[in-house]
């Protein structure tokens, strides 16, 4: 049987990185966290494959953080994943960045946990997950909350993970590996069923122009 090799892209979170998971071995490349992540994305991917001694065409599945996160980063990741998947004829799975963060904090000690990201305008966007199965399962839709003291108020006493750490108050779970690696591992455990995901981005909020017109 062919070894599975999963390429996972995260340009949505504030710590962007790519991971190539070959069997049980993960090859990570972190990317600059500024606006230039897109310039380094293909180089990062190339480096992962070269370290693994694989060619791009041996990729069996692509996973990508679809947001929430940096609006531009979300789109660069999804557009790149689409282009690679289309050119390599390789299935692409797009996954919520919050789900990927929850996966990065996975531990038997935490059957349920919350994941959070900055949503701008002094708000965070967060979501609670059930972690007892092979993949994180949302307990409720993602929601925005005021950033100050959100952990105590909003997360219902659940442990939480965020990028960067302690986004909603002290005590967030320490993440030991990049979110892209957690994403690759999750997809390796249980790929999404059926046809590959759409390339729909998940945004933490409407555009400023839409908000001004009263969009939620």
């Amino acid at each position: 049987m062919r070894t599975i090799s999963i390429l996972a892209l995260d340009t949505a979170s504030p710590s962007p990185a790519v991971t190539l998971l070959v069997g049980e071995t993960a090859f990570d490349e972190s990317l600059p966290s500024d606006r230039h992540a897109s310039e380094h994305l293909l180089a990062g991917i190339e480096s992962c494959f070269s370290r693994a001694g694989l060619s791009l065409s041996e990729c069996t599945r692509i996973a990508v953080c679809a947001g929430p996160g940096s609006f531009t980063g979300v789109r660069v990741g999804l557009a790149t994943a689409w282009g690679l998947g289309r050119a390599l004829d390789c299935p692409v799975e797009s996954v919520s960045t919050l789900e990927a963060i929850a996966e990065a904090a996975r531990s038997p000690a935490r059957p349920r946990l919350a994941a959070a990201l900055d949503a701008g305008r002094e708000e965070i966007v967060w979501q609670a997950f059930d972690m007892t199965g092979p993949r994180a399962i949302p307990l409720a839709p993602a929601a925005r909350a005021s950033a100050s003291g959100a952990a105590e108020r909003a997360f219902d006493g659940l442990p939480y993970a965020s990028v960067p750490a302690d986004l909603a108050g002290p005590g967030s779970v320490l993440l030991e590996a990049p979110v892209s690696r957690a994403l690759a591992l999750a997809v390796a455990r249980r790929p999404a069923d059926g046809p590959t995901a759409s390339f729909a981005a998940i945004y933490s909020r409407p555009s400023a122009a839409e908000e001004k017109r009263g969009a939620p």
Partner: peptide, 10 residues
């Protein structure tokens, strides 16, 4: 980004 990915992978 999409164009780069297509050309890169092909």
């Amino acid at each position: 980004s999409a164009a780069k990915a297509l050309a890169f992978a092909r």
